[in-house]
Design a binder for these strands. Sequence first.
DNA 1: CGTAGGGTTGAGGTTAATCAAGTATGGTGG
DNA 2: CCACCATACTTGATTAACCTCAACCCTACG
Lengths: 231, 231
Amino acid sequence: MDIQFVLQQCPLFSTLPGDVLEQLALLVRKKAVSRGTELFRQGDPCDGFYIVAEGSVKVFRLSPAGKEHVLSVARPGQSFGEAAVFAGEGFPAFAEALEDTLLIFLPRGSFLEFLEARPKVAHRMLAGLSQWLRRMVGLMDDAILADVDTRLARFLYSLAFSGPAKNEAEGKVTLPMQKQVLASHLAMTPPTLSRALTRLEGERLIAVRDLEIEVLDPDGLRDRAEIAESP
Amino acid sequence: MDIQFVLQQCPLFSTLPGDVLEQLALLVRKKAVSRGTELFRQGDPCDGFYIVAEGSVKVFRLSPAGKEHVLSVARPGQSFGEAAVFAGEGFPAFAEALEDTLLIFLPRGSFLEFLEARPKVAHRMLAGLSQWLRRMVGLMDDAILADVDTRLARFLYSLAFSGPAKNEAEGKVTLPMQKQVLASHLAMTPPTLSRALTRLEGERLIAVRDLEIEVLDPDGLRDRAEIAESP
DNA sequence: CGTAGGGTTGAGGTTAATCAAGTATGGTGG
DNA sequence: CCACCATACTTGATTAACCTCAACCCTACG
């Protein structure tokens, strides 16, 4: 695994010139963990943050009653835990590897030094945190203002037609996580997700086969997702 | 109104030395608006952000169906809209003055220049955004994982015993907004909030008189809020 | 006074959680 | 190769929390 390559994949650092990337690479540590490994717990003091090189990591919160809510699933090139670096109050969530995973760890102290000298990177971090904030706010009022079918439709639509327009030829996407994880991410239970998928399938908007989802009617799905037309 | 004084009240700038504050003060514009004025709309291009000097501003999102969700109410010394400055994608929410309000406006361009030269301030902004992120995540999984009574208890407890421990002698606080605004902030409807207050009152945890809330049983309220003991 | 807005109270309806049973699927060990 | 088990997912029936709609109260204010 090439560290610099991974760093460059990360939105936070993708605009950095080669020599700066090289300096950054000197600060980091590689870390290989197996499925189920807990990277950090809510409240743990934050000694740095991570970028996923291979595999995936679930970031989630636990209610006092033990119910879990998945904030995000980090996949290769994505970072997690970076917000905690600046607040200095410990991690606000749990993180656990969903499969055998290769990570890059950026220690807090040396990373902050690195930042101090590079306003450009700091600016990039500010943009990155703003994005997180945006995403979380979106997630939140989705969960509050929209019903389950709408939430699901919105997730599927943006998976298929925005974001890193990935492996889909026409409208075929693969869910980036298990359905029970997705259910928690969308603030619903697995039975509810199952039924919501069935309903959207019944409306001929999608076709489901395990984690493979085919979007049959993009416009219909967009309507269901209550997303405004773009032009 | 003294601009520098207001800037210093804002957590983002409270640690700045006097001369830097002076420079910052040169960039800003005062703005007086009357109750009901819309400061910006969701999607508007972001040309800067605000700090409240006097009054209060409601920041909220609207669902396509027209339902409103109040993200926060900014009061004197608090900033809003700052996240949009960095993302460069327009404001993610609406903002409207709840009363006649005095504002300080920091224009995007000159503020970014100001930041560029001052890593310390940038670092502070990073911490500030992290705090926002934390608050939003907290709000979100409150709304998702906790029932209405718990949400309300949590809000009241933190209002009375953390935050800017304000005008309360023992356990008396004033709700910082109308009840219908609070209801939306806590992701419930006014009738539901009303009943929840009645229930907590019935359990002798609080006493309500208009916007004045007296906390009768702090420990009981903390238990109801499912907040872990601190020691 | 009379009206308007915020707030409360009551009855009824709906969404999604819960609980429980049933159906694949994949891995493991005999 | 097959029996076994664990895990993910689905399906069904019931329940409960909260929303909705409506009437009503109250205070402020013209």
